[in-house]
Amino acid sequence: MSDLLTSRDALVEAGRHLVSLGLSPGTSGNISVRVGDRMIITPTNESMGELDPSRLAVLSLSGEHLEGPRPSKEFTLHRAFYRRLPEAGAVVHLHSVHAVAAACLPPWSAASAVAPITPYFVMRVGQTPLISYAPPGDSAQADELEALDVPCRAALLANHGSVVAADDLGAAVNAAVELEEACKLSLLTAGRPVSLLTHEQAVSLAAKYGSFWG
Rank of each mutant, 00 (worst) to 15 (best):
M1F: 09
S2P: 15
S2F: 09
D3Y: 12
L5Q: 15
S7A: 15
L11E: 13
R16H: 13
R16M: 07
H17K: 14
H17P: 06
L21Y: 00
L21W: 02
S24L: 14
S28G: 07
G29V: 03
N30V: 02
I31E: 05
S32I: 01
V33S: 11
V33T: 09
V35I: 11
V35Y: 08
M39S: 10
M39A: 04
M39N: 01
I41D: 01
I41Y: 00
I41M: 06
T42Q: 06
T42K: 08
P43L: 02
T44N: 12
T44Q: 13
N45S: 15
N45R: 14
G49F: 03
E50S: 13
D52C: 07
R55F: 10
L56G: 08
L59K: 05
S60I: 07
S60Q: 10
L61K: 07
L61Q: 09
E67W: 00
P69G: 00
R70M: 06
K73Y: 04
K73G: 06
F75A: 02
F75Y: 15
T76H: 15
T76N: 05
L77T: 05
R79K: 12
A80F: 00
A80R: 00
A80H: 10
L85S: 10
G89D: 08
H93V: 05
H93G: 06
L94K: 02
L94N: 01
H95E: 10
H98V: 00
A99Q: 03
A99H: 00
A99L: 00
V100H: 06
A101P: 02
A102K: 14
L105R: 13
L105W: 08
P106Q: 08
P106S: 02
P107A: 13
P107D: 09
S109Y: 08
A110D: 14
A110F: 06
A111N: 11
A111H: 12
A113G: 09
V114G: 06
P116K: 08
I117E: 06
I117D: 06
T118N: 04
Y120N: 14
F121C: 07
V122N: 13
R124N: 14
V125W: 10
G126K: 06
T128D: 11
T128Q: 09
Y133R: 06
P136D: 10
P136S: 13
D138C: 09
A140C: 07
D143N: 08
L145T: 09
D149V: 09
V150L: 14
C152S: 14
R153L: 13
R153I: 02
N159L: 08
N159W: 06
G161D: 11
A165M: 12
D167A: 13
D167L: 10
L169Y: 01
A171C: 05
A172I: 04
A172K: 03
V173C: 03
V173K: 05
V173Y: 05
A175C: 03
V177D: 03
E180Q: 05
E180T: 07
E180C: 04
E181Y: 07
K184A: 13
K184Y: 12
L185R: 09
S186Q: 15
T189C: 14
T189S: 15
P193K: 13
L196P: 10
L196H: 12
L197R: 02
L197G: 05
Q201V: 01
Q201T: 02
Q201P: 00
A202L: 02
A202C: 03
A202S: 14
S204G: 11
L205P: 07
A206Y: 02
A207N: 14
A207S: 11
S211V: 01
W213D: 07
